[in-house]
Computed example of a mutant assay.
Amino acid sequence: MFDDVSSSSLRVAAAGLAARQTAIANNIANIETPGYRARKVEFEQALHGAIAKGESPSSVSPSVQDSLEPTRLNGSNVNLDEETLSHIDTTMRYQLTLRAMDTKYSMLRDAIKGA
């Protein structure tokens, strides 16, 4: 019941977005750290690929890579503008994912209650 494609996809999306939020926070916190390489979290293509192939979405996990942005004079490559926009986008996607999970579980709760 809780391991269907949509539930699994929502759980993977929430985990991936949470990991991205953590990476963004670390990137912003280290903006002035000499030599710091910004991190990027990817999971959407892997999730889409798993669903398209009929595989379980729960097998997908977020991957973290170093950003390929050019570096500044101190060797850091954190771009505050990009991180800020990514933070806003990720927060909105995370809220939407949580709302979808809440709606799904509310429907299940109503079905169990017989309402």
Rank of each mutant, 00 (worst) to 15 (best):
M1N: 13
F2Q: 09
D3P: 09
V5H: 01
S6Y: 11
S6A: 09
S8T: 11
S9V: 03
S9K: 01
L10H: 05
L10K: 06
L10E: 06
V12Q: 01
V12W: 02
V12R: 02
V12F: 03
A14H: 02
A14C: 06
A15T: 09
A15H: 09
L17I: 01
L17Y: 12
A18N: 08
A19Q: 15
A19K: 08
A19M: 15
R20M: 05
Q21T: 11
Q21G: 07
T22S: 14
I24S: 02
A25Y: 11
N27T: 03
N27I: 02
I28Q: 07
N30H: 06
I31Y: 05
E32S: 14
T33S: 04
P34R: 04
G35H: 13
G35Y: 12
G35E: 06
G35Q: 13
Y36V: 04
Y36N: 03
Y36S: 03
Y36M: 01
R37F: 10
R37Y: 05
R37S: 09
R37I: 07
R37Q: 14
A38L: 05
K40Y: 08
K40A: 03
K40V: 11
F43G: 04
E44I: 08
L47V: 15
G49S: 13
G49H: 15
I51R: 08
K53M: 02
K53W: 07
G54S: 07
G54W: 09
S56I: 06
P57E: 06
V60L: 06
V60Y: 06
V60C: 05
S63H: 12
S63K: 07
V64Q: 04
V64T: 15
D66C: 07
L68F: 11
L68D: 00
E69Y: 15
P70Y: 14
R72V: 11
R72C: 03
R72I: 07
R72N: 10
N74P: 08
G75T: 00
S76E: 04
N77H: 13
N77F: 06
V78F: 08
V78M: 09
N79F: 03
L80M: 13
D81F: 10
D81Q: 15
E82H: 14
E83Y: 02
L85G: 12
H87T: 11
I88N: 03
I88S: 01
I88P: 00
T90R: 00
T90D: 01
M92K: 10
M92G: 08
R93C: 02
R93L: 03
L96I: 07
T97F: 04
T97Q: 00
L98P: 00
L98S: 00
L98Y: 08
R99G: 11
A100C: 10
D102L: 10
D102P: 08
D102Q: 12
K104G: 14
Y105E: 01
S106W: 11
S106E: 04
M107H: 13
L108Q: 15
R109M: 09
R109I: 00
R109S: 04
A111M: 02
A111D: 07
K113C: 12
K113I: 15
G114Q: 10
